[in-house]
Amino acid sequence: MSGHSKWSTIKRKKGANDAKRGKIFTKLIKEITIAARMGGGDPEGNPRLRSAITAAKAQNMPKDNIERAIKKGTGDMEGVAYEEILYEGYGPGGVAVLVETMTDNKNRTVADVRHFFAKSGGNLGESGCVGWMFDKKGTILVDREGVDEDELMDLAIEAGAEDVIEEETSFQILTEPEDFSEVVDALEKSGITIVEASISMVPKNTVEVTEEKKARSLLKLLENLEDHDDVQKVHANFDIPDELMEQLS
Rank of each mutant, 00 (worst) to 15 (best):
I199S: 05
W132S: 15
L244F: 00
I199A: 02
A215G: 14
E67V: 11
I199P: 02
A52G: 05
E212K: 15
L141S: 13
E83S: 11
R144G: 01
L248Y: 02
V234H: 04
E158V: 00
K13V: 14
E100Y: 05
E162R: 13
H4Q: 12
G122Q: 07
K27E: 05
H4G: 09
T210M: 01
G39L: 12
K11W: 09
M245A: 01
E126N: 10
I29K: 14
F238T: 03
E176K: 13
K72V: 04
E78I: 12
V113L: 07
L124W: 02
I192V: 14
E226D: 13
P47I: 07
K72H: 04
E151F: 09
E88D: 08
D64H: 14
G125F: 00
V147R: 00
T109W: 03
K27G: 01
N65Q: 12
K106T: 09
N17M: 05
A56P: 08
T139P: 03
E83W: 06
V110P: 00
A16M: 06
D230A: 05
A69I: 02
E246K: 14
D229V: 10
R216M: 07
K213G: 04
G89F: 01
V183R: 03
D154I: 06
P47D: 05
N205D: 15
R50M: 15
K11C: 07
V183C: 02
S249F: 08
K137L: 14
D229R: 09
L221R: 08
T109N: 06
D163F: 02
A156Y: 00
M153T: 13
P203F: 03
D150K: 11
K136L: 15
A159H: 04
V110W: 01
S198H: 13
A236L: 01
C129Y: 11
E223H: 12
K233V: 08
N224L: 11
D239Q: 11
G138M: 12
N46K: 14
M1C: 06
A111D: 11
R216L: 09
I173L: 04
E243G: 00
A81M: 14
K72L: 03
K189I: 13
I140S: 02
I53G: 00
V110A: 06
P241V: 08
T54P: 04
R144S: 09
L155I: 04
S51I: 03
T109K: 04
E223Q: 14
F134P: 03
Y90Q: 12
D239K: 14
V183H: 02
A215S: 10
C129F: 10
A186M: 07
A159P: 07
V97N: 00
K136E: 15
G15T: 13
S217Y: 11
M153K: 14
V99E: 03
K213S: 13
A35I: 09
D76T: 10
E168Y: 10
A52W: 05
K30R: 10
